[in-house]
């Protein structure tokens, strides 16, 4: 850098103030462009082709999207994605409940906290395997329990009615832990004077929680919802580990279907996979836009 700041370079001196921020931003922006922005447009571009990844590409216009509209498997995935989105959000209130429960000073509370936090630390693959065994017919704990209670066993992961619910339940375990941590941090920052003042005014229990605590947890709630929504939309690993999309494709979600079509052993329809990815991207865009608009409004108010 020292050579560019030499007295001979008048240009740099004149524009230093204006250029410096861009120079600092450049590495990040280049990375972001290469790994995020350009691939997005490439995906959109590939989605108009019929391509197996090896041979020549053939332009087929919107044919991939037309086919999607008439594809049963696509609707199954879409339906499951919505189910994921709705049920996964249970992690937010559940995380809050656990956080409120753990936000007290008793002997050994650190141990309890880490036990609750544990599922978030272990890999999703391990979570998936644990729950697969938990659900396994014949020797799984849950099926054994159901059998003693009702007399007949249910193979959750082989039944199209329960399979997605079973996977979501597995996903909620680490997600609740994540939301809990977010709320625990939030609870630490609560203004004790406000709580005291509210108590003096006679607020207790639910009204204290609703009117005093929750408003102060706003930022934590916001982040918790954002990460949960994104987590629900990119749910892939658990589906892949626990069922591989089965039985007969009934537990697929969009991200898994995209992978299956474009990259799996029986797939290699890059164009079709890209079209699914574009649809998933559009759905994500709705949420991302909402969040960004909200964030900008907040900044303006602040």
């Amino acid at each position: 850098m020292s050579s560019t700041v030499s007295p001979t370079s008048g240009f740099w001196k004149r524009n230093q103030q204006r250029l410096a921020p861009w120079l600092f931003l450049a590495p990040g922006m280049i990375m972001f462009a290469i790994y995020v922005i350009i691939p997005i447009f490439q995906s959109i571009w590939i989605s108009f082709y019929d391509w197996d990844g090896l041979g020549p590409k053939t332009w087929i216009g919107v044919a991939n999207y037309v086919e999607l509209l008439d594809d049963e498997a696509f609707y199954t995935s879409l339906k499951n994605n919505i189910l994921w989105l709705v049920l996964y959000l249970l992690a937010v209130p559940a995380g809050l409940a656990v956080a409120l429960f753990l936000n007290q000073t008793v002997a050994g509370i650190r141990l309890y906290k880490s036990l609750f936090f544990f599922p978030f630390v272990i890999s999703q693959v391990v979570v998936g395997l644990i729950f697969t065994w938990f659900y396994a017919p014949d020797f799984g704990l849950l099926s054994a329990l159901i059998k003693t209670l009702t007399g007949h066993s249910i193979a959750i992961l082989a039944d199209e009615r329960y399979v997605t619910l079973g996977i979501i339940a597995a996903g909620l375990w680490p997600q609740i832990a994540y939301c809990m941590i977010l709320y625990l941090t939030g609870l630490n920052n609560i203004n004790p004077e406000q709580v005291e003042a509210a108590r003096m005014d006679g607020a207790r229990g639910w009204s204290l929680l609703w009117h005093i605590i929750l408003p102060q947890l706003g930022p934590a709630t916001f982040i918790a919802i954002v990460v949960t929504v994104i987590g629900a939309l990119r749910s892939f690993d658990l589906v892949s580990i626990m069922t591989d999309g089965g039985p007969y494709g009934s537990s697929r979600v969009l991200s898994f279907y995209m992978y299956e079509q474009a990259l799996s052993e029986y797939g290699y329809r890059m164009g079709y996979g890209a079209a699914i990815a574009v649809v998933l991207f559009m759905i994500m865009m709705i949420f991302i836009t909402l969040f960004i608009v909200r964030m900008l409004m907040r900044e303006r108010h602040a």
Binding site: Y135, A155, L157
Partner: peptide, 11 residues
């Protein structure tokens, strides 16, 4: 008639 293992889709 159920001549295949039950829950075969899970294993």
């Amino acid at each position: 008639p159920g001549y295949f293992l039950e829950n075969h889709a899970a294993i």
